[in-house]
Amino acid sequence: MDGGGRVFEPLTGRKPGGSPRPRGGAAGARKRRRPTAGRPGRFATFGPIATVQRQFERLVWALERFHWPRYGGVTATALIILSSIGFGIVRGGHTPVVVDWMCDVRDMGANAVGFRIAGVALTGHKHLSRDEVLAIAGVSGRSSLLFLDAAEARARLKANPWVGDATVQKLYPDRLAIDITERVAFALWQKDGQVNVIASDGTVLEAFVSKSVMTLPFVVGAGAETRARDFVAQLDRYPAIRDQVRASVLVAERRWTLKLKSGIDVRLPENDLPRALDQLATLEQDKKLLSRDIVMIDLRLPDRVTVRLSDDAAQAREEALKAKRPKPKGNAA
């Protein structure tokens, strides 16, 4: 009892230095140990809350009696550390670096037991150099033949625009054979002011235009890259016309217009292109039409040829016509 008359008792209900004594003697003790089914205590709960409470008590009881395996704490700590490292690698964007490092370690082990690539037989390359082909295929001095993926190397080679087809063969234990088929530069294609080198199938090979490709046919316009092969094949049948063409422009992806070196535009029809080229070749052979002072030749209509003179030629023609007109006779006085 403290100074205020209050008595402090232990939480278990026992008095210090003594043992608990049930009220009412032995009979009262036996009566207290008797289950009281159907008679809830003062703080009893019912329904879902009681169910949750019982499940929580069972979980606590199971955790108290669970025995961790030997070195379980060390294993759990190692897993946490490794997980943290992995999260940091992914979050920091270092995954490619780690993957490359692991591949290098793997290849070092394979090279140590005799799977180092000692020789590479490379055929079919003309535009691409040997070093460029090996770099595209992913073959380096650290690569091992054991872990080299031939299918992946072939796919990487075919992804290059200059490579039309490729074959990669692994010859164990230390040889590699690569055979490629290169595309050939066919024409120069201009679209939206950008000039690219294209192959005959329309594949863009590169944007850099060197002096070695300046003599290739020059096509302009959307869709011209895929239709250039057929058009150039027909134009090659008329060397006298082809040699005077500076550019071939595909208009609205329907018809071609020839831009000649002399400044003349030749408008070709959408259909029956061979007929128009035959007609143009005949006019050039018989009348030297392409060397005259004109700016446009329209061959779109099958039954006529329309020619537009230059400004100087039109003015000269007008003056010549005026000179030929008869002068009006004056009235006699």
Rank of each mutant, 00 (worst) to 15 (best):
H94G: 06
V184F: 03
Q279K: 15
T51Q: 15
I294M: 10
A150E: 15
T45C: 03
H94M: 13
S129W: 04
A276T: 14
F46I: 10
R39F: 09
G4K: 12
K31N: 09
D100L: 12
V113C: 09
E152M: 13
M214C: 06
G86T: 10
E253L: 07
G109P: 02
V52M: 04
L82D: 15
L11Y: 11
L258P: 10
G164Y: 11
S83V: 02
H94E: 14
L273G: 10
P69D: 10
A177N: 14
P40T: 02
W101N: 07
A50N: 13
T123K: 03
L273Y: 08
L205E: 07
S143Q: 08
P69S: 02
E284S: 05
R227F: 06
A240G: 05
L11I: 13
T282P: 00
D174T: 13
R42C: 00
L258N: 03
G263H: 05
F208H: 09
S144G: 12
R154H: 10
E9T: 14
A137R: 09
G223Q: 02
L250C: 01
S200P: 00
K329N: 08
A37W: 15
S84H: 03
R70N: 01
R58D: 12
L283F: 13
T36C: 07
R183T: 02
H125L: 02
A314M: 04
P48M: 05
Y238R: 04
G114T: 04
K170C: 06
E132F: 00
T51E: 15
N160Q: 01
M214P: 04
Y71M: 08
D179C: 03
A323T: 05
L205P: 05
E132M: 00
S248Y: 00
G330K: 15
V245D: 03
A314Q: 04
T203E: 07
A121K: 13
G13P: 05
A118L: 08
A323Q: 07
F208D: 08
V195I: 15
R106S: 15
T181E: 15
L273M: 06
V133I: 13
A240F: 09
F56W: 08
V98K: 07
E64I: 04
E284A: 05
G38L: 11
R227W: 05
A50R: 12
G221A: 08
A155Y: 08
G18K: 13
D107E: 12
G141P: 04
S212V: 09
P274M: 01
T12Y: 09
V184R: 14
I80W: 12
S200Y: 05
F218P: 08
F8V: 10
R242N: 01
R34V: 02
A323M: 08
L122M: 05
G5F: 03
L11G: 01
R254S: 09
A37Q: 11
Q285H: 11
G88R: 04
G263Y: 08
Q315C: 06
Q53Y: 12
V245Y: 12
R229S: 01
V232R: 04
R58C: 10
A27D: 12
E64Q: 13
G92P: 01
